[in-house]
Design a protein around this nucleic acid. Structure first.
Lengths: 151, 151
DNA sequence: GTTAGTGCAAATCGTTTGCACGGTT
DNA sequence: AACCGTGCAAACGATTTGCACTAAC
């Protein structure tokens, strides 16, 4: 899903958020944000860690920082995550149109879709239950067309 | 969600399934099935383990057996699970109308709902992507009315 | 200079596995 | 008797945490 916001703007927002919360603007935090923005897709914390190690071998980085930063970014709704049962989470850039996921259980690939009707119904249902919705996830699991073809 | 099938029938089906697969009918397996059937709700493997330890202290039971049996029951579509990111899964009795979940992030409580329109759209979307759907999950996260009241 | 952030390694949590023993068929 | 299922404890993988050091403010 294509980003609908320029990176400069994202970065500005992030810096402002950090300031508001007495947090510091560090190289690591910026790199993690940028990697997720640039690489359209869904990544595990380890993926992100490896991507940064490759592209910026000169920067010191620990996996713990990746986890800490992802939690931060998710709290601020800058990234979203989808979970895979016990097998951890994948993260994606979050400032984009909301969308849902088709997850292939064979190859782990994720396709995205957006359906206005489903979005509306979700709002209605939350209202009906007097439930303050902070997020919603729709995930269809199964076998993607490529994997069906492979047999 | 109220069970739509009598326990006797569930148990019969389960025994048949075991036989068909050359598996054995054990006290542990029966107890796990019964606990999930009887206690309408959503349980972690540990919950189930503790419930059985309490109600049947005379039975030998290890947590590993609970995991193994839950996997078995889920494969057979006798129970369903919903996942909570890193924090594991909760299981519920699965032979009932399909339904989706409202998950409260404060108290962990789960409410259920069913929406015909959403079900239909899911089918259509899978078809559109030539995706062979094995399962689908809709989860609305947020704050339940009780927790909103508490502030 | 003060405070927050970091890497590292150890700890933790949920889950899985190898193995010898016990129960079901 | 044959074979599967079990408990136990060790192994595991993802994530979190304590701590001394470093960087941002």
């Amino acid at each position: 899903m294509t980003n609908t916001i320029a990176y400069d703007e994202v970065l500005q927002n992030f810096k402002t958020l950090l300031k508001l919360n007495n947090l510091k603007y560090t190289t690591q935090r910026e790199l993690i944000l940028k990697i997720i923005y640039d690489n359209d897709g869904h990544f595990t914390p380890e993926d992100i860690y490896n991507l940064i190690k490759e592209s910026h071998p000169e920067v010191k980085l620990g996996i713990a920082t990746v986890y800490r930063t992802l939690t931060l970014l998710e709290d601020e709704n800058i990234v979203n995550s989808i979970s895979f049962g016990t097998q951890g989470k994948k993260y994606e850039f979050g400032i984009t149109n909301h969308h849902d996921h088709l997850v292939c259980l064979k190859c782990g690939n994720i396709e995205e879709f957006y359906d206005e009707l489903i979005e509306e119904r979700q709002e209605e249902i939350a209202k009906k239950f007097n439930f303050k919705m902070s997020n919603h996830v729709m995930k269809i699991t199964g076998t993607c067309s490529a994997c069906q073809a492979k047999g």
